[in-house]
Design a protein around this nucleic acid. Structure first.
Lengths: 212, 212
DNA sequence: CGGTAGATTGATGAGAGTCAAGGGGAGTGG
DNA sequence: CCACTCCCCTTGACTCTCATCAATCTACCG
């Protein structure tokens, strides 16, 4: 089965160590697993520093990334659902875990911030579904760059914390297609890449057009 | 532009009539618009009978369907976000509208049922994103059939209320590919189609495997 | 100075999109 | 009751994009 190769690229057995615990904050080294499918549904997390990915593993070993989460972002809400995702550290990162009671159908009210987190997760996931619905690698990669630029301190300079494989699994493409599309953008002078992880947007307007 | 053709297939100008109002319940004829992007964010809806689709229209006229909603399902929560979707009646349907205050950051608690709706919308959207991330028409269509079967009174007999175009826009495929894939399933005796809208699952286990 | 993981590039083929031409089925009107 | 029409669906032929397989290339680290 040819797809087994891709699975090996992000073998989960590589991430087994226990995180350091310090005043409710958890630290994870790059690639470490933060929680896995079927974890404790009574907690959720906030990213303090670094970047986290939430993902789903298929039966055939293929991986699909649900989202990238930077400082301030909340993740792990999905645990309340049957939908179980796992989470891993894209880079060295610190996350804060919070316990909460899922009140079930108890009829009690819910703290506003929890509702707010749910709504933001919903918006994020809808945007992702919209992205995945696009046909064409160009549209997807352009949309991805725009998304990253929006979260960057300097919207013209993106520092990608994730690998090409991560991007591919997020966009529903292969690593080669992502790479080729970025090269294509560079040849067209839409972007410049000092290193593979440093992307400068030369023509944001043109990229905007490519998004759709 | 070749894609303009597809846009004409679901021209929104065809749906302009006002719905009948009766005790908070709204009735919509097939194809009618229930709300459009940028509508009143202070209401959400529950399907009483029939089926509703929520969708997004792109600049080039292409349509992407966010979800299908049957009796009991809640939709329109997205209105609270910048993410605006529109909603249309797939079949003749009745929906109940409810008003709610989006409390913003007021710090007050939120009624539990609202939170519950948000979480279910989140789960639904995540499942859809997972579906769209699949590569291959076979996987997508098989997953779609499984999804429909799960909501059907008889899990072995699906009555599709939506057109092939709806299905295609939901799966990120073309109408031809959806049609061909269903025909392929039928030739393989995985399903049987008395009419184009009546699908009998002959081999649910095999379809399950195709989902991946 | 290797060694390794990540990234790029090329060649090739499978699969989905596109364009185009028919087949029903349901409703309408004669 | 039949003919007509419109819309939806299906099927075929062809094109093109992207996945796949394979070979480097680069940067980083021991």
């Amino acid at each position: 089965m040819p797809k087994a190769q891709a699975a090996a690229c992000h073998d989960r057995s590589a991430a087994l160590a226990q995180p350091a615990r310090s005043a409710g904050l958890l630290h994870f080294g790059q690639g470490r697993e933060i929680f896995q499918e079927g974890g404790d549904p009574g907690v959720y997390f906030t990213v303090v520093s670094g970047m986290v990915r939430t993902c789903k593993f298929r039966a055939d070993g293929r991986r699909q990334i649900d989202g990238f989460h930077g400082p301030g972002d909340v993740f792990g809400f999905e645990l309340a659902q049957a939908q179980s995702l796992s989470a891993e550290a894209v880079s060295n990162c610190t996350v804060a875990s919070r316990r909460w009671r899922n009140l079930g159908a108890s009829g009690r009210n819910v703290p506003h911030h929890l509702f707010s987190h749910a709504m933001r997760s919903l918006a994020r996931t809808q945007a992702h579904a919209l992205l995945l619905g696009r046909r064409g690698a160009v549209e997807k990669v352009a949309a991805f760059l725009a998304e990253q630029a929006a979260q960057s301190p300097d919207p013209a300079l993106i520092t990608l914390e994730m690998t090409r494989q991560d991007i591919a699994d997020y966009l529903g493409l292969t690593i080669e297609t992502v790479s080729r599309t970025l090269s294509q953008f560079e040849r067209a002078s839409l972007i410049g890449m000092a290193t593979a992880r440093q992307v400068r947007l030369h023509d944001a307007a043109a990229l905007q057009k490519l998004r759709d």
